[in-house]
Design a protein around this nucleic acid. Structure first.
Lengths: 141, 141
DNA sequence: CTTGACCTTAGAGTTAACTCTAAGCTTATA
DNA sequence: TATAAGCTTAGAGTTAACTCTAAGGTCAAG
């Protein structure tokens, strides 16, 4: 049985975060001491580690909630439910990557267009490009 | 001279957003009517469009503030200041892309490991992988 | 002169995932 | 037994960039 700070140490989450997750229904201590101290058993620890792993991959706390309830009752959930969550997340990630790559290209292009030197910015091609507009941006295909 | 909703239409920003930007020092109307209505002249419009372009590229409002003050007094700023801001943003974007690509790979790997079918999740390899931990995640190199 | 569209402000709400604080118990150690 | 470390709770604060609301003033058209 671990106290909250011990679980924090094991998982690399803070005690604050563990309480926060509890408030959001992700993790709880199966036992409490008379004084109200949380005590985590092995199953609790595994659950906390599951949460941490999922979080590190990038799942939202909401996603994690769903994954946890599947994990709790695997028999009445399908693999498809799990892949749906995962695929949805992957789509989101792919979308963000595409957006960022757009920004990356534009920034790269701006940087190569400008001397970057100590001369004053009167004819800075980055400033000029921003004044012109017409730069590729989020939403362009 | 444009009223706020007209400028909103021209720029594709909302009137709310324009007032928000004003509160944050990015855009203002050079004139006000007696009743307090904002009136934007050509220079204001160009400034608003500059802001919108920079925002669409992904610069933070803070970055945009800096770019605007360089733009306002180009003679006393260098190209290097501009490239510093741009490079800094590019580094940030590159970092985020790397993080997301990590997530992308992990999610991809999970998806190919799981059947995704209607069978129950008792042996779902995604759930199992999350239980094992040991998945590549943010911070791994 | 009335109606409806538009303008003003200050300030609160949104989102996600924490992060921290205050005030007060509890527990382990010396 | 004193002290320090650790635990509890409710609730506020953080960040970025909006987004919306309420309460009220203005203006153009019919």
């Amino acid at each position: 049985m671990l106290k909250i700070s011990e679980l924090a140490e094991q998982t690399g989450l803070t005690a604050h975060t563990l309480r926060f997750y509890e408030k959001h229904g992700l993790i709880r201590a199966s036992e409490r001491s008379e004084a109200g101290y949380r005590y985590y058993n092995d199953a609790d620890v595994r659950r906390a580690e599951f949460v941490k792993t999922a979080r590190n991959i990038g799942f939202s706390l909401d996603d994690i909630g769903q994954l946890l309830s599947i994990r709790l009752d695997k028999d009445s959930h399908s693999c498809q439910e799990v892949t749906d969550i995962t695929q949805h997340k992957l789509n989101e990630v792919n979308g963000k990557i595409a957006e960022l790559q757009m920004m990356q290209q534009t920034l790269q292009r701006l940087l190569t267009s400008c001397c970057g030197g100590p001369e004053n910015a009167t004819h800075c091609s980055i400033i000029e490009a921003l004044e012109e507009g017409e730069l590729p941006a989020k939403g362009d295909s």
